[in-house]
Write a protein that binds this DNA or RNA. Structure first.
Length: 611
RNA sequence: UGCCUGAUGGUGUAAUGGCAGCACAGGUGACUUUGACUCACCUAGUCAUGGUUCGAAUCCAUGUCGGGCAGCCA
């Protein structure tokens, strides 16, 4: 006993260039506490790319005893919807549950940034509620946590509209912003192109008083959509396009799903995001590579306002693009509205809700996206890596069951009609102390049609004319006769069961090359099984000129399978391995007691049919 | 002819001037009442050319190739 030291060493925390920066900032005393944020726009469901961002931001928070705020970046009411707020909240909670839920930063219900004074200067601040740290015992103060959560909600950028407006007035007063009357088309023309400098707007040099008056009237609703905008006054000749007097506010006479009908001017991302980060006390604002060009603007807004507290800083990493998947909310929306799939949570979708419904455990998704690493390299991640971690997680989690997807009938001629032989079947051989259950062997059983070949290929270990196989957990059978109907279609296989080869029997040690799965015809249930395959036929559908042309027509096959009767009691939380077939879970939407629907999460690795 | 950013086996990712390592994929074998799992072994890499250095994937120079940027989207 004393010889065995650390039997299960804790897995090392991941290391990457962003974590290096965080560690250096901490070492230099730039922050007392690390605060990150996950800031989705509620205009679609979260997908696997977001899962990477969630695991990065929450991962950094949990490794540093910090917090990660869930914030809705809801500055464009025209594209957003409360349905997405709900789905995103659900998905985030599911992904971080039991891993980083203690780092989830929320705010008191209805709270807005509060006025405060820092070093004699006015300031506004909205810190997160501090959730209790996880107990080292398994007796977590769950009631306390629940009570905290009941009075809490995610952050919303739209809760900052009043403060953002005040900051805009400050920018105008500092001569750093102006109201522009150019329409969208002219604004674009004045902006120039990457190779060609832009030109100043004719409205660029309005007086502070006129800008103030116009901006206040924009808010008051005096002007129609698009008639005017508020712009930062930076440099129309800047080589960085985002510094050519970018828009800060636009006029949109539409109600907001969270802020109601209070506003008809809405801030744009570049203006709202950095200030939202500041108001929440974010230390590290982590986003994807396409925002690198925006970073100078992020810093410009913050620095122009001369704010009293430490400023957040933006860091960028490359997004996760798994092979054979699409990660573009716009294209995913297209699949949904075009009825290519049944919804955002269709088990073929790369959405978090789709992957969940497919049966993939949150732990597997986390392991995959964390394992992919964090770099600035545009990578296409091999989907085999994800398939590997899903199998790895499920191998430990899933209980083994017998299920025959495409049945072919066997008659064991030496068993009597109505005779039932109970066999012990192992629930999970991976368990330290595996448990067993009973399965019934009867005269008529089903086996997988793939497990029989009338004309077997070389090295075929399964059932063939005159050959023997073991029915797993039962006994060895020998094929005596193939029965066909008038059309030549095989109707049944007549075999002899050698009961002496049962576990505990005198010939239990007898070896045969093949062991196959089976179910009793009388002691089994019929159930719908949905066999999924990848949604696209090419590794990089997102790079295709028309991604709809590379959709896999065989991404879903619905079949009626025969399953061992214990599966009648399956619940949504169960994960199953149908032995020799794959991993399965009940469908959360369409399955009902008595009318079960199983989704195939993933097949077992198959080294045989590959050859 | 602009600005930003990147390049390590087939794929992804480490090595922060000092033995190019890990995972997946692929291959061979062992084990097996899952052709699964597990185990062993094997295959395979620093974009190019110069330079600095005792020593370069790493630093410098030049080049090549890739990605991003001209929404009143985020």
């Amino acid at each position: 006993m004393t010889v065995e030291t650390d039997a299960t060493p804790a897995p090392a925390n991941p290391s990457d260039f962003i974590r290096d920066i965080v560690a250096a900032d901490l070492a230099a005393g730039r922050h007392q506490k690390i605060v990150t944020r996950f800031p989705p726009e509620p205009n679609g469901y979260l997908h696997i790319g977001h899962a990477k961002s969630i695991c990065l931001n929450f991962g950094i928070a949990r490794e540093n005893n910090g917090t990660c705020n869930l914030r809705f970046d809801d500055t464009n009411p025209a594209k957003e919807d409360i349905e997405y707020v709900d789905s995103i909240t659900t998905d985030v909670n599911w992904l971080i549950a039991g891993w980083a839920d203690h780092c989830l930063g929320l705010k008191p219900k209805g709270a807005h940034p509060a006025a405060q004074t820092v070093n004699g200067r006015p300031d506004h601040y909205l810190p997160s509620i501090q959730l209790p740290a996880p107990s080292s015992q398994l007796t977590a103060p769950s009631s306390q946590l629940a009570a905290t959560a009941a009075n809490a909600e995610p952050f919303f950028a739209s809760d900052y509209f009043e403060q953002l407006y005040a900051y805009a007035l400050t920018l105008i007063e500092k001569g750093k912003a102006y109201v522009c009357d150019l329409n969208a088309e002219d604004t674009e023309a004045y902006r120039g192109s990457p190779e060609k400098p832009g030109q100043d707007s004719p409205f660029r040099n309005r007086s502070v008083a006129e800008n103030l008056d116009l901006f206040q009237r924009m808010r008051a609703g005096e002007f129609p959509n698009g008639a005017r905008s508020l712009r930062a006054k930076i440099d129309m000749t800047a080589p960085n396009m985002w510094l050519r007097d970018p828009l800060l506010y636009r006029i949109r006479h539409v109600a907001h799903h969270h802020a109601g009908d209070k506003w008809c001017i809405y801030p744009l991302y570049d203006y709202a995001h950095c200030l939202s980060d500041y108001l929440e006390g974010i230390t590290h604002s982590i986003c994807t590579l396409e925002f690198v060009d925006h970073r100078p603007l992020y810093d410009w807004v913050l620095e122009s306002l001369e704010l009293p507290r430490a400023l957040p800083h933006q860091y960028e990493f490359s997004k996760l693009i798994p092979g054979y998947m699409i990660v573009s909310k716009r294209k995913l929306l297209h699949l949904v509205t075009g009825n290519v799939v049944t919804g955002w949570d269709d088990p073929r979708m790369p959405t978090i809700s789709g992957l969940r419904r497919r049966g993939i455990p949150a732990s597997a998704l986390r392991k995959f996206v964390i394992g992919a690493g964090v770099t600035k390299f545009d990578a296409l991640t091999d989907i085999a890596v994800m398939e590997h971690v899903v199998r790895e997680e499920l191998n430990g989690l899933a209980v083994r069951r017998l299920g025959v997807l495409r049945p072919i009938k066997i008659v064991l001629t030496n068993l009597a009609e109505g005779e039932v032989i109970e066999c012990d079947a192992t629930n999970n051989p991976q368990d330290e102390t595996p448990t067993t259950r009973k399965v019934a062997l009867t005269r008529e059983v089903f086996i997988e049609s793939d497990d029989f070949a009338e004309v077997p290929p070389p090295k075929y270990f399964r059932l063939k004319p005159g050959g023997e196989v073991r029915l797993k957990y039962a006994c060895i059978i020998k094929l005596d006769e193939i029965v066909k109907d008038a059309a030549g279609v095989i109707t049944e296989l007549r075999c002899t069961a050698d009961l002496t080869t049962r576990a505990g029997g005198p010939n239990s040690d007898k070896k045969v090359k093949g062991t196959i799965h089976w179910v009793s015809a009388s002691h089994s249930i019929a159930a719908e099984v949905r066999v999924y395959d990848r949604l696209f036929t090419v590794p990089e559908p997102g790079a295709e000129e028309d991604f709809l042309k590379v959709i896999n027509p065989q991404s879903l096959e619905v079949i009626t399978a025969r399953l061992e009767s214990s599966l009648a009691e399956a619940t949504l939380d169960d994960r199953f391995q149908f032995e020799r077939v794959g991993y399965f879970a009940l469908d959360s939407k369409d399955s009902a007691p008595g009318k079960l629907v199983f989704n195939r999460t993933i097949s077992l690795k198959d080294a045989w049919t590959k050859k």
